[in-house]
Design a protein around this nucleic acid. Structure first.
Lengths: 354, 354
DNA sequence: TTGAAAGCGCTAACAT
DNA sequence: ATGTTAGCGCTTTCAA
C-alpha cells in the first residue's frame, strides 16, 4: 500500500531558501522572477540552495500579486466535432510556447453550461479564445470588458477576430465545379444563426453569380452527418448535379443519404465540403473540400491573444483572415449531361480510395 | 474604438462588502464559504450588499489558503487521435458537475513537452487524469506523490487505474469470427511499449486458444492509419482470412492497404478493430469493432479522482474495469473457403453503407 | 454567532 | 545590488 500524494513536510518557500542562503526573501524572489536584477553570483547561490531544498515557486501566490495566471481559456461548442481537434492543438501549442496552459471549456452545445464554465474560468485566466459559442454578441462584449478575448470564425465589430477566407474558398470551389461542367449548384446550409454559415452562403452565391452558375440554397440543416442526410432528401426533390455543403460533416451525411436513394457521388452528383476534417480523407468517396487551416487558426488566435494580454491594444480593426485552399479528391467529377439518378454504381463512385 | 477589458475601479473585495454591510470581513468570508456558520439574516444582508457591489470571490486568493484550485489536469498523447474526443468530454463533464475546471495537456507525442506542461500544471491543479502518457511508471509514481492521480488504460500497481474489459472484448470478437467460419486469425499489434497493446494481444491470444482458433501476431505497427497500411503488406505475405487490429485507426488503414492490393474486406478478409471511434461508422466498409465506453471511462476516472481529492484514499486495490461490447458492422463476413485474394469486387464489399 | 488578527507565498515599492 | 516592509484577497484560529 503506497501513501498517496502525501506532503510529508511543508512545501519549501522563499523564506526557507532565503534563510539557508543568507539573503533576504525578496532576493530569492528576484532571483527567480527577474534574474537580471540580481548579482549573478548571488543568483547562482540562491538557485543552488533552492535546488537542494527542492524549492518550487508557487504560481498561485505569484498570481495573487501579479494578476497573471498564465492560463488561457479555450471555448468550443462540442469536442466531438472533429474540426476542433486541430484547433485545440494549435491553441495548445501556441500557449505552451509562451509557457501558458490551456483551460478547456466544452459548452456541450448548451448555453447554460457555457456560461457556468466560463464564469468559473474567467477569474483565473489571463484571456480567452472563443472558438465557437452560443453566446450573443452582447454577452461576448461583456466578457471582453473583463478579459482580453479573441473570437474565431465570427466577426463582431470592435472585437479581435480571426476568420478564414471563405470568399476565396467558395470561389475556388465554384471554378472547380464550373470546369467539370456543372452550371447549376445547390448550397446546403448549416445553422441559420451561425456566422460562418452566413458568410459561406454569401460567398458561394457571389462566386456562382460571377461565374454565371445558377445557384440555389436548401436548409438550414444541422451541421452534422444527420443534417447531411436530411439535405439528401431535400436535394432529391429539387436536384442539381453539384452541391456545396456548409461543412464536411454535412457533406459526408449527404453522400450517405444520396447513396441510399440510389444516387451516386460523384457519378450523378458532385459534392464539395468545407473545413477538411480528418475524416474527409477517410470516407468513400474521399471528400473534395475547402480546407481551413485549423491548426494555424488556433495558433494565430492564441498568439494574438497573448500579445493583448501583454498589454497590446486589441487593434480591433479588421478581422485577421487566413488563407484556405481547395482540396480535390473523389467526391467531384465531370458532369454527365442528361444522366438520371439511378442505383447502378459507376466504377469511379465505388472504387475504394488509394 | 472600444476600451478593451478595462478594470476602471479596483475589484471589490470582502472588505468593501464588510464595511458596507457593517460586519467583519471574516463574516463576509463565512457567508460565502460556509453559510451554515452565519446567522441567516446576516448572511442574507451580506449577500445582498455583495450583489449590489458586484462582489465576486477571488478563486486565487481562496486557493492560496485552502490549497484547492478546483482545477484538474487531463493529459493525452495527441488530441487529433479521435479516441480522445469522447474521453475529454467525459472528463470535462464530470469535472463540471463538481464545479471543477479541466486543464488540458496535449503531450503531442513528446516526452519533453509532456513533462514541461505537466510541471507547469501540477502546482495549480488538485489532481490529474492521465489518459495516455509516454511517462514511465516511475515518473508517474513521482507525480502521484505530489497530487492525486488516476491512470487510464494502464495498470500500475498501487496507482488507481480505470481500464476497459479487453479480455471480454477479445472473447466476443473471437466468437464472432468463429461463427463466421474463420479458424485462423492474425493480431496486428500496436506499439510494443503500450500497456493496452500488451493486454489486447494476450486477450486475443487467450480467447483464440480457448475457441480452438489458430492465432498469429504481426507487427508492431504505429497505431495509425499508416500503421494499418503497413500491416496490409505484412498480411499479404502471411495471409489469414480474419484480422483483429490493435485499434480502429489501424483497422481503417489496413482495409485501405488491402483494397489497394486487390484484397476485399470483408469478401476476402474480415477485420475487427478496437475502440469504436467516430470514424468507424463513417468508413467503407463500416468497421466491426470492440467498443470501449470512452465517455464513461473519462467520467469514471474523474469522479474517482474527485473523491481522492476530497480525502478518500486511493483504495489502490484492483483497477476499475469498464464493460465493452462488440459492434458488428460491415467489415466482417462469412469466410469463403478456398477463396483467393483477387481484384474483383464483391457486391458486399463495395456497397456504400446505409 | 461574530470579530480581531495572523497568516498563505509571493511581489513591489521604498530604502539603503 | 540587496534588504525592509507592506500588501494581494481570502481563510482560519482564537476570543468574545
Amino acid at each position: 500500500m503506497s501513501q498517496p500524494h502525501q506532503s510529508p513536510v511543508k512545501r519549501t518557500t522563499i523564506y526557507d531558501v532565503a534563510r539557508e542562503a543568507g539573503v533576504a526573501p525578496s532576493t530569492v524572489s528576484r532571483a527567480f522572477s527577474k534574474p537580471s536584477r540580481v548579482n549573478s553570483n548571488t543568483a547562482a547561490r540562491v538557485r543552488q540552495v533552492a535546488e537542494r531544498l527542492g524549492y518550487r515557486t508557487n504560481p498561485l501566490a505569484r498570481a495573487l500579486t501579479t494578476a497573471r495566471t498564465h492560463l488561457i481559456a479555450l471555448v468550443v461548442a462540442d469536442f466531438t466535432n472533429p474540426v476542433f481537434a486541430q484547433l485545440v492543438q494549435g491553441v495548445q501549442q501556441a500557449a505552451a510556447d509562451a509557457a501558458s496552459t490551456t483551460v478547456l471549456i466544452d459548452a456541450q452545445e448548451s448555453d447554460r453550461l457555457e456560461r457556468a464554465a466560463l464564469e468559473r474560468a474567467l477569474p483565473i485566466v489571463d484571456g480567452v479564445v472563443l472558438a465557437s459559442s452560443r453566446l450573443s454578441d452582447a454577452a461576448i462584449r461583456m466578457i471582453s470588458k473583463q478579459r482580453p478575448i479573441v473570437v474565431l470564425n465570427r466577426d463582431i465589430p470592435d472585437i479581435p477576430c480571426v476568420v478564414t477566407d471563405n470568399p476565396h474558398g467558395a470561389r475556388r470551389a465554384a471554378e472547380h465545379l464550373r470546369e467539370l461542367g456543372h452550371d447549376h449548384i445547390t448550397y446546403a446550409a448549416g445553422p441559420e444563426p451561425s456566422w460562418a454559415n452566413g458568410i459561406r452562403w454569401r460567398s458561394v452565391l457571389e462566386a456562382a453569380t460571377a461565374l454565371d452558375i445558377k445557384i440555389r440554397r436548401i436548409g438550414p440543416f444541422s451541421p452534422t452527418i444527420d443534417g447531411g442526410r436530411a439535405a439528401a432528401d431535400e436535394l432529391r426533390r429539387r436536384p442539381t448535379t453539384a452541391v456545396i455543403t456548409y461543412n464536411d460533416q454535412m457533406a459526408i451525411g449527404l453522400i450517405r443519404g444520396l447513396s441510399q436513394l440510389g444516387i451516386d457521388v460523384p457519378g450523378d452528383v458532385s459534392v464539395v465540403g468545407f473545413d477538411d476534417i480528418v475524416a474527409a480523407d477517410l470516407v468513400t468517396p474521399r471528400l473534395t473540400t475547402i480546407a481551413a487551416p485549423l491548426f494555424a487558426q488556433g495558433a494565430a488566435a492564441t498568439k494574438h491573444l497573448l500579445t493583448m494580454i501583454d498589454g497590446a491594444t486589441g487593434h480591433t480593426g479588421q478581422p485577421m483572415v487566413l488563407p484556405v485552399r481547395l482540396i480535390i479528391r473523389d467526391s467531384t467529377a465531370r458532369r454527365c449531361p442528361g444522366r438520371r439518378p439511378n442505383p447502378t454504381k459507376t466504377t469511379r463512385g465505388n472504387r475504394l480510395p488509394r
